[in-house]
Design a protein around this nucleic acid. Structure first.
Lengths: 214, 214
DNA sequence: CCAGAAAACCTCAATGGATGCAAAATTTAA
DNA sequence: TTAAATTTTGCATCCATTGAGGTTTTCTGG
């Protein structure tokens, strides 16, 4: 048994073993948590159980997620990044409303393809968020933060055309309309297509007013 | 010492001793909590301290409020009632947008006069909610619930004119616009008048679109 | 291959919010 | 005055979250 442990040379873009292990631990925690939430519910699952299934100590959980709720929203950051990127990549001739519509579309696409990480967790997450008050509160908080960041980004994208207040009002109106409409309607319809349709109708209501902004 | 303990006769509308004591305990808990949050911050205040200052047991706190955060929002229910009442008391000729504007106004008036319960707690509460993440999450959750209820009430007020989705979109757009705009702007201005002005401008942006609903 | 240095992990202990339960105190109604 | 109904209280307990200190693993430069 000889030389099979040559020194690894890290070229740019290459990640070391440490980093890879971290990603694996993170994934293990996410999967463990989601499976357990699915099997026995959010409240009924303890952190000790999650950590045990992921084979780490309870303490370690908190170096990956700030709270038990947070593990459910593991991809919220990348989602926001996506929206902000869509905003930054605007075409010079694009109107504000077109841009906003495109952001809505990009977000929905993201839900549909779920490139980010595996599973059909989208449905599970939706069920959990709709069911568990703690998760609902966390979701609203994250969404709100995203709105603020989007509003600032929008204002910076159109500094001459939109004031900060107008940007915030636009983002708030659009997302607020979609959010409340979708949730209010959620007890009736079920298919993803219907939900997306509801969202679009709500967005239209909100956007009609935003067109006056130019 | 003789007869100074005659039996109290309860006439209609009169509340018994039990009920009055409950109200007093509730008030004591609210005041104790707010004072302590003001003095040492939300996180730094323990339930034991709140209960001690209100002169009840720690356990009793939880028969009045479901959580530590909840004390801060002691009047959220009556606020919602107010808005729903304003909605129910619509004039037959009033348009949807006028009605929505009136609800916004009613809510602001409520902040300004604070008839409900005492103090200039409004400012303290605003500071706390803006500062403490736990309170912010709770506030967003309560606000969201209110929006859903308002949306349903609006739909029932105009069953022929607005679908549930349209009602929800309208409420979500209006409140979403106001909320995000006010918060986004909060770092700059300070006076209550400026804030209300910001809110009105945001409401205008959202309302412009809602007019298309009739 | 080896010796730090740095990063991740682990164990242990403590804090504090929240809940269930049964006994004790208080208020109401008869 | 007494019994029923309601509140309050004193535990006991659960569990999320955090801090401290020590151990293992990975990385980096000889």
């Amino acid at each position: 048994m000889g030389e099979n442990h040559k020194r690894v040379q890290y070229s740019s873009g290459m990640v070391g073993l440490r980093e890879r292990k971290k990603q694996r631990t993170r994934q293990a925690l996410i999967e463990a948590a989601l499976r357990l939430f699915e099997e026995k519910g959010f409240e009924e699952t303890t952190l000790a159980e999650i950590a045990a299934r992921a084979e780490v100590s309870t303490r370690t959980f908190f170096s990956y997620f700030v709270s038990k709720e947070d593990v459910v929203f593991y991809d919220s950051q990348s989602r926001l990044d996506l929206a902000v990127a869509a905003l930054a990549a605007r075409k010079p001739d694009e109107s504000v409303t077109d841009l906003l519509l495109r952001i809505i579309d990009v977000s929905f696409d993201h839900v549909l393809v779920a490139q980010d990480l595996t599973f059909e967790d989208a449905a599970l997450r939706a069920r959990l968020v709709l069911t568990e008050p703690a998760l609902q509160a966390r979701a609203l908080h994250l969404l709100f933060d995203s709105q603020l960041k989007l509003a600032r980004a929008l204002h910076e994208a159109f500094p001459e055309r939109l004031t900060l207040v107008e940007s915030a009002a636009a983002v708030g109106a659009l997302i607020g309309a979609v959010k409340v409409a979708v949730i209010a309607n959620l007890e009736q319809d079920h298919s993803l297509e219907e939900i997306i349709d509801t969202a679009r109708r709500a967005a239209d209501v909100a956007l009609a007013g935003l067109r006056s902004l130019g």
